[in-house]
Amino acid sequence: MARSVTPRRKLLNTTIAWAIGLLIFFPILWTILTSFKSEAQAIASPPIFLGFDWTLENYRVVMERSDYARFLWNSIIIAGLSTVLGCIIAIPAAWSMAFVPSRRTKDILLWMLSTKMLPAVGVLYPIYLIFIELGLLDSRAGLVVVLMLINLPIIVWMLYTYFKEIPGEILEAARMDGATLRQELIYVLTPMAIPGIASTLLLNFILAWNEAFWTLNLTAVNAAPLTAFIASYSSPEGLFFAKLSAASTMAIAPILILGWFSQKQLVRGLTFGAVK
């Protein structure tokens, strides 16, 4: 509902909006800035905003000390595989619900959503026990499965709302022209579905990356991703602000960049298509 306003009004709005935006962003900015300070300057009083001696020392120390690469690799593997696996399972399901709906489709969709509402802490011990039995505790495979399952409802939902927007007439036209089911899938539907699938992958990768209940409770050393890497800084290393900042920046930077590309999909994905 953009309307035309006077330049003065626009200037005022712009100033307030930027002030609020910067205020909200400030903790992240401050973390990034602090990561380039020396430990002494990081806790200097009064705080130094920009006029400090920029250094990469903290990054070097964090990398050296904590095997950052392993945590990063775990995060990538766990978030990536769980998302891709989820999509492989969800695409056929969402596909059939969108194009061959039955009377029960709506109930199945809502039921899937309801599994997402199950409080994790309520089923923590059973999962823990199953993991011990199957030898999955502190393994990447186990976490991939769990994160895939907790995000599966969102993946199905997002894909469903995207597929739903593909007009059925196009499929009928293809069929009229004698396309087989295989050709229909490969040449007609897939190209139209790719943007939807891409945004689903993106958003769920982010959600899996940031998941911090199962990743903290089901890992120890081998499979621990970046969430656990940061949690290990809680004390006393957390008091070394510059190193904490460097570690934090490394943990959030990749996802912050991906996240900025996915803000539009975020609304749809997290409201299950109820707000578009």
Partner: peptide, 14 residues
């Protein structure tokens, strides 16, 4: 918009 949305992408432990 990007500035405002950013905190959502920061992992909870961070």
């Amino acid at each position: 918009r990007i500035l405002v949305i950013a905190p959502f992408f920061v992992m909870p432990t961070v």
